Amino acid sequence: MTQIRVTVDGVEYADDVEPRMLLVYYLRERLGKTGTVVGCDTSNCGACTVHLNGQSVKSCSVLAVQADGAEVTTIEGIARDGQLHPVQQAFHDNHALQCGYCTPGMIMQAIDLLGDNPDPDEQEIREGLEGNLCRCTGYHNIVRAVQDAARRMKPGASADTPAPAAVAGGGQ
């Protein structure tokens, strides 16, 4: 066993872990962060995406011991004061989910994408999310949601301002 100290969603934890334990299992089984989904265990689907020291990573490809001393943010840790994160709200408002299995990873990757590029075009969004797979939506509403979130997150923008019809429209 190896002792680690890690801050997850603003709370510090100290635990003994098996050196081979994956971060995704540490988050789910030890800390109860079940919003971090196990999809493939091969880093192909992106469902387990979390932020490690502010950068998105697929937690099925990171050992828990590699997170020692780090700050991890999960899907459970991005809402503030009872308010959804703008990307979460945009996914909801734009119907950017169906079964919801990929949604936590998509949202975490989208937040990282928007941190690097606050005004991506459609192609940049598609490329920025290419490591996250969705089998249900066809990605159209996911792209719309990221565009909407980018608009909401611009300085001076109001999260309550309705999205333009082209962004808020239905259909996939």
Rank of each mutant, 00 (worst) to 15 (best):
L27W: 02
N94A: 12
Q98N: 14
P118G: 08
D121T: 11
Y25R: 03
T103V: 13
G115Q: 12
C48N: 04
D116T: 08
N132F: 06
R126S: 08
Y13G: 03
E130P: 02
T36A: 02
L114E: 08
H51Y: 03
L113G: 02
T34M: 10
Q66H: 06
D68A: 06
R126A: 00
A64G: 15
D41A: 08
I75T: 12
G77H: 12
H85E: 14
I107E: 03
L22C: 14
Q109G: 05
H85G: 09
C99K: 04
A70Y: 02
T74V: 07
D9I: 12
G82D: 06
L129S: 05
E127M: 06
G131I: 00
D16Q: 09
P120E: 14
S61K: 01
T74M: 13
M21A: 08
R28V: 04
L84T: 12
N44H: 10
L22Q: 07
D112T: 04
D93G: 05
P86D: 11
G105S: 02
Y13I: 05
R20T: 06
L97Y: 15
D112V: 04
L84I: 10
A79Q: 14
P86R: 03
E18G: 04
I125A: 13
L52M: 14
E127H: 11
V6H: 07
L23P: 00
H95P: 03
D15R: 13
E130D: 12
I78H: 01
V62Y: 03
D112I: 00
N94H: 11
Q89F: 11
V37E: 06
M108Y: 06
R30N: 13
C48A: 01
Q88T: 05
Y13M: 02
L52C: 03
S43N: 00
D15I: 03
V65Q: 08
S59H: 06
I78P: 10
D116M: 14
P19Y: 05
G46I: 02
A90Q: 07
R80W: 14
V62I: 11
G100R: 10
R126P: 05
R80D: 14
V87E: 07
D9Y: 09
S61A: 04
R28Q: 08
G105A: 03
V6L: 08
R80K: 14
N132A: 09
D121C: 11
T36H: 02
G105D: 01
Q109P: 01
P118F: 14
R80M: 15
Q88M: 07
Q98G: 09
A67G: 13
K33C: 09
P86Q: 11
L31F: 04
I75K: 10
P19A: 10
A14E: 15
N53Y: 12
Y26F: 13
V11T: 13
L22Y: 01
Q123S: 07
V65M: 08
E122T: 11
L31D: 09
Q55T: 09
F91G: 10
T7N: 12
P19Q: 05
T7Q: 13
D121S: 08
A96W: 07
C45P: 02
Q109Y: 01
P19E: 12
T49Y: 07
Q88P: 13
N44Y: 01
T73M: 15
V17G: 09
P86T: 14
A96L: 11
